[in-house]
Amino acid sequence: MENFTNNELNIVDLPQFESVTLQRLQTKYRRVLAVNIGVVLLIELIILLILTLKPEELSTKDVLFFWLGGGIIGFCVVWLTLLGFRKKGYAFREHDLIFQYGVIATNTKIIPYNRVQHVALHEGLISRYLGLAQVEIYTAGVQGGDIKIPGLLKDDAERIKQLLMGKIQKEL
């Protein structure tokens, strides 16, 4: 801290978080998403079948209407999930980490390393089979101060965890 200076600086010269090239999630992760979508669609199908399998109470127009609506919802689920996958990205800078997500709104969340409280590593059932993992980074922020990066290679996730742990240790 002794040789630390705090001169007035031009805000344009600061490193810009928005011009960082983001890393994308592993393409393998799409298989996990596919399974998730499959489950959702299956549930939707069951609901639709229950609703429409009493033909005496519904006219053909109603049945058609239900199936059309169901189809649109199903399509939206698939489309949003795939687009959501494409939109997710992360980057590790010298002093902070960046995570971008969101389809309708593009959200960019930034956590400085000196605010990280702890790091957790999650593996789902399918993810483990594919050798993928999810890293979760916690801060003391009470509402939405945390970042979850899914679809990382297990080794990468482990390395990220080590990196962050190292940063936290240094801060302490």
Binding site: I104, T106, N107, Q143, G144
Partner: peptide, 28 residues
């Protein structure tokens, strides 16, 4: 500040407007 989130709806990109959320240990 614990973390920062910037957010922009896709139709606001060309208008160059967006939002920011500052996360603290007592709320946002």
């Amino acid at each position: 500040i614990q973390a920062i989130t910037t957010s922009q709806l896709f139709w606001h990109k060309s208008l160059n407007i967006g939002s920011v959320t500052l996360h603290t240990a007592a709320g946002n």
